[in-house]
C-alpha cells in the first residue's frame, strides 16, 4: 500500500489516515474532527480555482487548503 500526503489525492480518491504532522497548525482541530489513525477520507472535489479541496471524513464535508493537506499522511 502506497503512502502519500492528502494533497496528492484527486477528486474521487479514498484513503485512510496514517498520521498528522506533529507541527501541523490545525492538528488539534483535525483530531477533534476525526482525522485519527485509520479514519477513512474521501476527496470530494477541488474548488474552481484549484485550491482548497473538499474532503469527507466522518460524514462531514470539510474544505482544507493544499498547504494544510501536506501535513496529513494517508494510505490508499
Amino acid at each position: 500500500m502506497e503512502e502519500r500526503t492528502l494533497d496528492q489525492l484527486n477528486p474521487g480518491d479514498a484513503a485512510h489516515v496514517v498520521s498528522l504532522d506533529p507541527r501541523h497548525p490545525l492538528r488539534r482541530r483535525l483530531l477533534e474532527l476525526g482525522f485519527v489513525r485509520g479514519a477513512p477520507v474521501t476527496v470530494v472535489r477541488r474548488a474552481p480555482m484549484g485550491d482548497p479541496l473538499e474532503l469527507r471524513v466522518n460524514g462531514t464535508d470539510l474544505a482544507l487548503r493544499l498547504a494544510d493537506l501536506r501535513g496529513i499522511r494517508v494510505r490508499r
Binding site: P25, P52, D61, L62, A63, L64, D68
Partner: peptide, 10 residues
C-alpha cells in the same frame, strides 16, 4: 495569526 484554514460545508 497563522494556523491553517478549515471550512465546514454543512
Amino acid at each position: 495569526e497563522g494556523g491553517g484554514v478549515l471550512l465546514e460545508l454543512p
